[in-house]
Design a protein around this nucleic acid. Sequence first.
DNA 1: CCGACTTTGTGCATCCGTTCACAAGCGGTA
DNA 2: TACCGCTTGTGAACGGATGCACAAAGTCGG
Lengths: 251, 251
Amino acid sequence: MASQRGEGETTTTPLEPADRERARAIPEAAVARLAVYLRVLSGMADQGVNAVSSEELSQAAGVNAAKLRKDLSYIGSYGTRGVGYDVEVLVSHIERILGLTRNHSVAVVGIGNLGHALANYGGFPGRGFPVTALFDVDADLIGVPVGGIPVNHIDEITAICLEREVSIGVIATPPPAAQSVCDRLVSAGVQCILNFAPVVLQVPDNVEVRKVDLAVEMQILSFHVARRADEAASVSVDNNGLGVDGMVIRP
Amino acid sequence: MASQRGEGETTTTPLEPADRERARAIPEAAVARLAVYLRVLSGMADQGVNAVSSEELSQAAGVNAAKLRKDLSYIGSYGTRGVGYDVEVLVSHIERILGLTRNHSVAVVGIGNLGHALANYGGFPGRGFPVTALFDVDADLIGVPVGGIPVNHIDEITAICLEREVSIGVIATPPPAAQSVCDRLVSAGVQCILNFAPVVLQVPDNVEVRKVDLAVEMQILSFHVARRADEAASVSVDNNGLGVDGMVIRP
DNA sequence: CCGACTTTGTGCATCCGTTCACAAGCGGTA
DNA sequence: TACCGCTTGTGAACGGATGCACAAAGTCGG
């Protein structure tokens, strides 16, 4: 409502009071989708697309059109009725809300298979997330550069994180080490953590943790496999014997 | 209600009708949590713990006790009032509901940094998910064993997935290849896909996709960093100048 | 055998997120 | 300028998940 069209300020980096209040109210689920919209929109911009309707964008993002509009409405009214959205404008506004106008320095702890992979992503997909520090306990790894960054010993976390202003810590250690690493990151002032270790981390209220848990993902899929298998079984009992061989298409 | 205590059948592998009906009704969010409870319980079992109350378990899993009980009630009534839950019993029932009594053969497509890491996990954390096939397009990789499995060319997906009865496909390719790989997996009869590529996959209704999107995770964290920074800024305007240097603890 | 105590299982109220449906607003056209 | 068709933005209905609070059901000690 307020500042609906503020003359020429397109990419004001610090959030204005109105926006700040809005940001507080955006549901987490919507934030996740905004990130997806952003990627789709960036792709469109690269292909020279200028305008897009909620219908088109929602299909490309794999969501309901109404949901998309509501999500966008959380960040303000930047569409034009009867026309759609300007791709560039939307991109810059989503970036602003997601805080992508600043760089977020990332530290990866645990340089095993996964840690290697993460470090080598180099700046992370979609950039804006430069990896500036790597940590491990293995003496053989200390000093070895991975993805251009030398590995430091885990005991140096506090000093280095403060020095390099790390704002996001990524935990890719074995499970037993995760909580202790987490504690050290927290005491180094890191308030956002991405946890790949299959462990439930205990953190103070002012720290945000997101987890990526492969085992859980696999088990959820397993649940669905089992459910399908059971349904198929119960069907092949109901109508005797049909739908057993090879391709079973269920519309 | 029915079969509350069914004599001695502790680990019947095929689901009974009552359970099947239940499984259909379990909310997705609860399934994810069940997987977490399972891990915590397994850890307890390893440490020789026999019984556990909803209070203890919920704390270890980082959730509300009432929610935990409700989640467990979805799979049946296996607790003892006044006492708690038998760890072993709970483990076996959760495993059964999640379909972990069978093995689920996994294929990984895209043997880059991430694919390597995934293949080397070897059977995946929590086992029951043997990786039985690897695919890539890179001629230099074909035939090279990674984590004990030789890499096959991507064109062989259909034949090999059918032959090895792959039930879960993992996509770890670059974004442009993801949809095409997905299509091939689907036509090979794979109905569950774990997608690491930052792409929205289009699949038929009978295929289940779960995505792990690093960029999105990072951006969600970025959003929270920005929100915090803004709040801090607005606070340091309110009370002039306090809480700027070093450690800021907010209870 | 009984009564006190503990913990589960669940009905119910609440909250958050999704979906629907439509008025408001804008561009194009005559 | 006035009308028409299209698309946004959002109020309101809906549905699912969360949390509370308590009855039911079990154990343990006497």
